[in-house]
Amino acid sequence: MPLVDVHAHFHHRAGARADWAERNASRLSAGERIGITAHVASILGSWGRTSPTYFPSTADVVLGNDALLALMREHPTRIRGYACVNPNYTEHALGELARCLGLGMIGIKLAASRRADDALLDPIADAAARHQVPVLHHVWQHRRKEWPGQEASDGVELGTLARRHPQVPFILAHIGGGGDWAHTLEAVANLDNVFIDLSGSGVDGGMLEACLNAVGVARMLWGCDLTIDTGWAKLRYLERIVSAPDLDRIRWRNAASIFPPRSFEGT
């Protein structure tokens, strides 16, 4: 049965981690162990080595996307890609999207280089609509202040962008990734084009029930982000609280409905 991780990351030789190859291998082997059939991944530039992770230079954006394209060629069904761009460089971002989506990437990754409700994100969202791909947006669950190292957005700010682009599916990143997830769920509950990615190291009791109550099964997407153990834990928990057909929707059917056709083997 397919299992699509909508929020994965890989590393590369030019990144900040010396153990990049071990971590990539570990992600693939842990994924195999729990049955992940597709890691939909992004690489955020050089992961801080030559420009900040959340403010990647244009050169690092290309470097990271090229590394991901190489991994996609190496694992053509197992690894699918989001094109990561920095919206502060509009022309470069649009060119990079055309290049990477043309080479087989299936979505767009926006991290925290520019607030989600900023007008500079509109051309990126327009590109998503033209290419008919979803946008995975890094979100801080209820940002009450400025956090160092990123221009983080929260659910309200992503919601503003989603209202301006109702035809684009937005994936609200890592509901378990830190912050007040209850605030996020309230902010996007009525936005049908915002999907909740369940990834993150947070495994709070009540969080999955709150997602079900706020947005329903049809807008929940399974994912891991940095920790596959917590992703597996949430999957095991969901097996106990939703029906088998609903679990299928969270595991892969919802993802298959917002990514381009035939993005995932077996779906």
Binding site: A30, R33, I34, V203, D204, G205, L208, I228, D229, T230, W232, A233, K234, R236, Y237
Partner: peptide, 15 residues
Amino acid sequence: MPLRIPESSVAKLDL
């Protein structure tokens, strides 16, 4: 638990 779901600690050992 119950602040965290207990499946997490089991899953990390299983992996």
